[in-house]
Design a binder for these strands. Structure first.
Lengths: 348, 348
DNA sequence: GTGAAAGCGCTAACAC
DNA sequence: GTGTTAGCGCTTTCAC
């Protein structure tokens, strides 16, 4: 490892026998440099192995082409796939990505915002899922914050750009699929209801049943914590207490797989005795026995779109300064039908 | 969104009626400021909502406390968990993380290195797995590159810091576990052998058999592509051709689960007819039927250690400048015994 | 076409 | 204790 100092624009200028300014022009592909000068400078740059400092450049331009991503729960499939999409979009759009990972879903906003501001990011993606009241700061801090932000996973808000993975539609698709197959006694295992996503899915289940003219039973609902083991633990007691339940919409695949394991042990057949719909379409969903009907969420696209949205917003802010158009973008999940659901025997 | 210009140190100084330098001193917690002045300046900072620019600071200090992470395959469990560990360690050590995601495992090194250099990162983590000859550039570029790098997933090299998830030991643990249970005809389904990790695991399988005095059969090996479907596709033909195979070490859990699905369909019982060991310990491994014996890799810790290693290296380089100590750190995976392997009936 | 001067926001070195 | 001067490496403005 060589400990050379950086080669600077000044050195290039001196070596090439021109002014710093002329070198800068070549760097920025300005037209007003003679072909000969340009060529010569280019040569010197290559020889010296010159690499312009983005730090210095960003400082003078007051523009960094950098976006800050605030995220949490990277240990879960959803966030990590989302980040994957964000990362690739950032690359494709020639931005730099600064990652700010929160250790918890609870956090203090102001320090994070300041942290990002200090780093001159051009825009921010708030990829922390809405959970409890962790969005209460919005109305307070946001109006006076000078950097554009796009939020993920959040209810619509005025003057706020949001990209939303439509959990309500997803819950509807899951529940209506079961209704279509003839099931009537449909239960629900939800995630922690403090999570916006969990609440939306549950609401959709509830609404779909009512719309179908079915007497809604909140008894058929159990709140779990997204984990496989919580799903495994919940299913038995639910069925013991309400043996009339014919089908269950489970708010994620992990819990659904847990439930299947538990059902296996108590000799309850899926889908003959109980139909199951999951949520997420994790890779394993297609391979459990029987393969799981589920709702597929395209997290990669979710992340990717969020970046596009943000870059649009950044441009808008830099130009018009006034008539900013805030968008609420929805991404619709998809029903994937497999063998954990079939037409109900009882009702046919 | 408010479009205020940044509040600068100059403004703070003027408002507080002191020089810029004094403000800077307060900013950096220098002792040589009177309590009274300090207090006053602090007050002005708060009132103005002053946030020091890290850009400007980094530029003058020639030190950014930023690390660049070059990574690929974020759609897979391993890399994404590793990134999780990297991100948390970076936070804990008060560094900033710039993410450079490569679209492919093949890449051109020089531009990536330049990209990072332009951003003044203090150090680099090369988290792209060694694959084919994608490390050939090491001897060429590295010696003249001025920024410390720590590599992951790579064979030992002189003058290079490496954190290594020990695939050889892992392969050994898997194979020896089967041997200990009494199996003798042990097959192997590997990942693409161009991958260093895949090659190491296979080598360990090979060596362990020889050490046990077993005539080694390369016929019992099939090369797959890490995917679930490839595992599902491979297992049938292997057993058809070599029905004498009693156990298989499969190089990742995804392929192992695929294999289990395929075995299920052809009515081959695991572990009675065939014992299976996977690799990775993905969450689902514990819940397939039967639960999968596997090798657990602590990717989180892997990522975390790599950052610690890098920060140590950065400090070393900044201080001694000469006697740098390059480390080869191994992380040992763990055997997790479940029900997909039991004592062999045939041999007992 | 090219260059000189000023400035981006901060810190380091030295003076007082 | 506090201020002055000179950078860090680049871009912008405005001359020539």
């Amino acid at each position: 490892m060589n400990n050379n100092r950086r080669v600077t624009i000044k050195e290039v200028a001196e070596t090439a026998g021109v002014s710093i300014q002329t070198v800068s022009r070549v760097l920025n592909n300005r037209p007003d440099v003679s072909a000969k000068t340009r060529e010569n400078i280019q040569l010197v740059m290559d020889q010296l192995g010159y690499q312009p400092s983005k730090l210095a450049r960003d400082l003078t331009r007051q523009r960094s082409y950098t976006i800050g991503v605030v995220i949490a729960g990277l240990e879960y499939t959803g966030p990590s796939k989302t980040l994957n999409g964000i990362a690739e979009a950032t690359e494709d759009l020639n931005y730099t990505l600064i990652l700010k990972e929160l250790h918890h879903f609870e956090y203090n906003v102001q320090p994070v915002l300041n942290w990002l501001y200090a780093r001159h990011v051009d825009g921010i993606i708030w990829a922390v899922p809405e959970y409890g009241n962790n969005r209460d700061w919005l109305s307070e801090f946001l109006p006076q914050f000078p950097i554009p932000i796009v939020f993920q996973d959040m209810a619509a808000q005025p003057d706020t750009s949001i990209v939303y993975m439509d959990n309500y539609i997803g819950g509807e698709k899951a529940t209506k699929h079961l209704l279509r197959l003839g099931y009537r006694q449909i239960g629900h295992i939800s995630g922690p209801l403090g999570w916006y996503a969990a609440a939306e899915r549950k609401q959709a289940w509830h609404d779909s049943l009512l719309q179908a003219g079915i007497e809604y039973e909140d008894r058929f609902h159990i709140e779990c914590d997204w984990s496989l083991s919580s799903g495994a633990a919940a299913i038995g007691p639910l069925l013991d207490q309400y043996p009339e339940v014919e089908a269950i919409f489970i708010a994620n695949d992990l819990m659904a797989i847990g439930a299947m394991q538990a059902l296996c042990k108590r000799n309850t057949q899926v889908p003959q005795d109980l139909a199951l719909v999951g949520y997420d379409d994790i890779p394993e969903a297609a391979f459990v026995c029987p393969p799981l009907t589920t709702i597929r969420q395209d997290f990669y696209r979710y992340g990717y779109s969020t970046v596009s949205q943000l870059v649009e917003l950044i441009e808008a802010v830099r130009q018009h300064k006034d008539s900013i158009e805030y968008k609420f973008t929805k991404i619709e999940p998809e029903l994937i039908i497999r063998e954990s659901t079939i037409a109900s025997r009882k009702r046919r």
